[in-house]
Simulated assay, not measured.
Amino acid sequence: MTLGLAPGLVLPEPAAAEFSGVDYTLTNQNEQNFSGQNLANTSFAGATGRHANFSGANLHGAILTQAAFPEANFAGADLSGTLMDKVDLSGADLTGAVLSGAIASGSSFRGATVTDADFSDALIDRVDQRSLCRDAEGTNPTTGVDTRLSLGC
């Protein structure tokens, strides 16, 4: 038995998925697409996410401790207030991302793109800070903060 729609009846568009507070601890998220999703207060502790797409996602307050996100896309993502210590972000795209107040000590940003990113009040290692300052440029489109100033270059 099939059900037909009444003429002129329009179904609403499905809402964006809500993942806030979900626990992805120690999971494999390689190649996954989380773009534009609300991932606030989620845990990706110990997770792997090579080439994962987090562009435009809200990761405010998320826990990324000891995770690996090499070559992941965080362009335009809100990473403010995240705990991201000892995270591999090598080759990640952080273009336009907001990392204000993030704790990223012991993390690797080797080869990461940080154009237009905001690192205001973020805790990052001095070695990473110096390295990021070599290529840092632009102004974050969300906060209006200069990337070099936010890194203390």
Rank of each mutant, 00 (worst) to 15 (best):
E18T: 09
D128Y: 00
S131W: 05
D146K: 11
S108L: 00
D23E: 11
S120R: 14
F34E: 01
V10W: 03
P12W: 09
G46N: 02
G91Q: 01
S55G: 13
A52K: 01
M84W: 06
T2Y: 02
A77F: 06
N33V: 08
L64G: 04
L5Y: 15
T48D: 08
L3D: 08
M84Y: 04
G61C: 11
A136K: 06
P7A: 13
V10F: 04
L99A: 15
A16P: 08
N58E: 04
A117C: 14
T95D: 10
A15V: 05
V10C: 04
T2S: 10
L149Q: 13
G8C: 14
S131D: 12
G4T: 14
L64F: 07
N41A: 10
A6Q: 12
Q66E: 09
L59V: 14
T139L: 13
N140R: 07
A75I: 10
T115C: 04
T142L: 12
S131L: 06
I124S: 13
F74P: 05
P141S: 03
N140M: 06
L39W: 05
A67C: 01
D116Y: 12
A72Q: 01
A92C: 02
L59M: 15
T25D: 05
F54A: 01
S108N: 01
V87M: 01
R130D: 11
L26M: 08
L132V: 10
P7F: 08
S20Q: 10
F119A: 11
G76M: 13
D93V: 10
A57P: 07
A62V: 09
L89W: 02
N30L: 03
N30M: 05
I103G: 05
T139V: 15
A16K: 06
A16E: 05
A40S: 14
D88K: 03
R130H: 11
H60A: 15
S35A: 11
L5H: 15
F69G: 00
A57G: 07
L39M: 06
G46P: 01
V98W: 04
N53V: 05
A92N: 05
T139M: 14
N140P: 08
R110T: 04
G96I: 02
T2M: 06
D23I: 09
T82V: 15
D135H: 07
V98F: 03
R148I: 05
H60N: 15
G76K: 12
G138I: 10
A62S: 15
D78C: 11
D121Y: 12
L149P: 00
G76C: 13
F119Y: 12
G49Y: 03
D116E: 15
D78P: 10
L59H: 14
T25R: 10
N58V: 03
D135R: 10
D88Q: 03
V98G: 01
Q32W: 12
L83E: 08
G111K: 05
A112C: 07
